[in-house]
Write a protein that binds this DNA or RNA. Structure first.
Length: 493
RNA sequence: GGCGGCGUAGCCAAGUGGAUUAAGGCGACGGUUUGCAAAACCGUUAUUCGUCGGUUCGAAUCCGACCGCCGCCUCCA
């Protein structure tokens, strides 16, 4: 029983079978690089990251393409609306390409912190203007598009399957049209492939139809096709992009190529903050840097990137996820528990006695791995997968209570933590920074001096002094823990 | 207005016709351990799944109405 995925196109779970045996080509809609990354990005990209990681875990050779949208997309079909790249450029007094560059790097850095694997290819829309123009020409030649006043539109009436992804028909769409329709369109539902640029538009390119810029949907079709072929295995994106973006991608790609564009459409759900849509006007718009540092009035503390990642994995990718301080707090506590257990296992491995892997433990571990894989195979049920990891935590802690647990047994536990919690879920790290050296070596040495003093006091049964020292360290955020093998310290979580 | 989805304990969240005690995490409470803590381990914490009806031998799971929320229909992931 292999992986099955919910395919938005067929509206049911299907067993995943790639076009080419052993290989998977996947395209995920990337960010428009004009502003800070936020919690919505975290949910979206962590979800797809786990898909990529799991495909690799079960042995596929994955090519992961995720675009960077660095073309501002002025005026959609209406006569209003602003090009976000241009707005950001004006706001920051920079060239749009400087904005794109800055926020692209920023995006990668934040995704790195969330432990998302980088795409194999991160194509930029502006780097593929030539290919986009070629595709528009093809669509014109095949009669699926028409030119009007320097712009080119896709003629939706020529593509019968339009609406198959989002289950809409054109009559319904017409009824729902509320914005003023461009005069150039033959039909209100037609969409722009190429837009004529006004002279003051900063980002524009020469084309057979004059100076202009590509329509929004075009870049994804072109870049997916260029790097993954005319038919790709998986296309991922946010539910909000199902219509019109993905519907239009299908139309133009299948019209141009005459073959199916995407075999499995995977859409992830949206986030809310404190139960409401995240928006600047509600003052609940939290960007990742604010979450990582705790500098937002809705947050009582900072949250580690991997704790945020864990909260994302706590729910299913197709369910909406509500971020709240309480939910984040819970995720941070759970993350701490996993982290501490993993570290304890690794530490004990260095000193444990050699011997056989305990058969009973071996059986338990085998069972956990099977349960984990079954959950992931069922449309990536990370919620259950995470529950398995907590089962492993409990098992590991029990083994740690027994001094006779062998190194081989601990090693088997560690492997499961690393493969399932690390390789697949991305919340267990290969190495954790050593606290003693994290900030400043001197701090570690100072704390050691205090610990020494306190332990002398304890030996003298002067607990007032001992508790005083511990309390004062806690006041500055350092927690002492008396373990069987000595006193440990850590920063307060 | 049209289309789609959701509503499970104090909080987050699986499960979506019948084994099930309705996973797991957080929090809270009790116990073991500890000089006291912390951490860890053990136990308790939803006779009930938004509300009201219906279908069925049987529903959190299917149908209808209502209430609340979310998404798309306007280039937000």
């Amino acid at each position: 029983m292999g992986l099955s995925l919910y395919n938005s196109l067929t509206r049911r779970k299907e067993e995943f079978k790639p076009l080419k045996k052993g290989k998977v080509g996947i395209y995920v809609c990337g960010p428009t690089v004009y502003g800070e990354t936020h919690l919505g990005h975290a949910k979206s990209y962590v979800s797809f990251d786990v898909l990529i990681r799991y495909l690799r875990y079960i042995g596929y050779d994955v090519t992961y393409v995720q675009n960077i949208t660095d073309v501002g997309h002025l005026l959609g079909d209406a006569q209003e609306g602003q090009d976000r790249m241009m707005v950001a450029a004006a706001r920051e007094h920079k060239h749009p390409m400087a904005i794109a560059e800055y926020y692209t790097r920023n995006y990668f850095r934040d995704m790195d912190r969330l432990n998302c694997v980088r795409p194999d290819i991160s194509p930029r829309a502006t780097g593929h203007i030539v290919e986009q123009i070629e595709m528009v020409k093809t669509l014109l030649e095949k009669g699926f598009a028409y030119e009007a006043n320097g712009s080119v539109y896709f003629d939706v009436s020529k593509f019968r399957d339009y609406g198959k992804l989002s289950s809409r028909n054109t009559e319904e769409m017409l009824a729902g049209v509320r914005v003023e329709v461009s005069q150039d369109k033959r039909n209100p539902v037609d969409f722009a492939l190429w837009k004529k640029a006004e002279p003051n538009h900063i980002m524009q390119w020469p084309s057979p139809w004059g100076m202009g810029f590509p329509g929004w949907h075009l870049e994804c079709s072109v870049m997916a096709m260029k790097y993954l072929g005319k038919t790709i295995d998986i296309h991922g994106g946010g539910l909000d992009n199902k219509f019109p973006h993905h519907e239009c991608e299908i139309a133009q790609s299948e019209a141009a190529n005459g073959v199916q564009f995407v075999r499995y459409w995977v859409h992830n759900n949206m986030v809310t903050v404190d139960g409401q849509k995240m928006s600047r006007s509600l003052n609940n718009f939290i960007n990742l840097k604010q979450a990582f540092s705790g500098t937002h009035e809705r947050l009582t503390r900072y949250y580690e990137p991997l704790a945020i990642r864990q909260l994302v994995l706590n729910s299913h990718y197709r369910s909406p996820l509500d971020f709240s301080d309480a939910a984040l707090f819970g995720a941070q506590s759970g993350y701490n528990r996993i982290t501490e257990t993993v570290q304890a296992v690794r530490k004990r491995m260095a000193q444990a006695e050699r011997g056989e892997l305990a058969p009973k433990t071996g059986e338990q571990l085998k069972h956990l791995r099977e349960k984990f894989e079954a959950a992931m195979n069922d449309d990536l049920n990370t919620s259950i997968a995470l529950a398995v990891l907590f089962d492993l935590v409990r098992l590991a802690n029990k083994l740690l209570e027994d001094n006779k647990t062998t190194m081989e047994t601990l090693n088997a536990v560690e492997i499961l933590f690393s493969r399932l919690g690390g390789d697949v879920l991305g919340i267990v790290q290969d190495e954790y920074p050593q606290l003693e050296h994290a900030d400043n070596e001197s701090i570690g040495k100072l704390v050691d001096i205090v610990i020494e003093q306190r332990n002398e006091a304890r030996k003298d049964r002067n607990f007032t002094k001992a508790d005083n020292l511990r309390g004062r360290l806690e006041d500055i955020g350092i927690v002492l823990e008396d373990k069987p093998d000595g006193t440990q310290w850590r920063w307060k979580g």
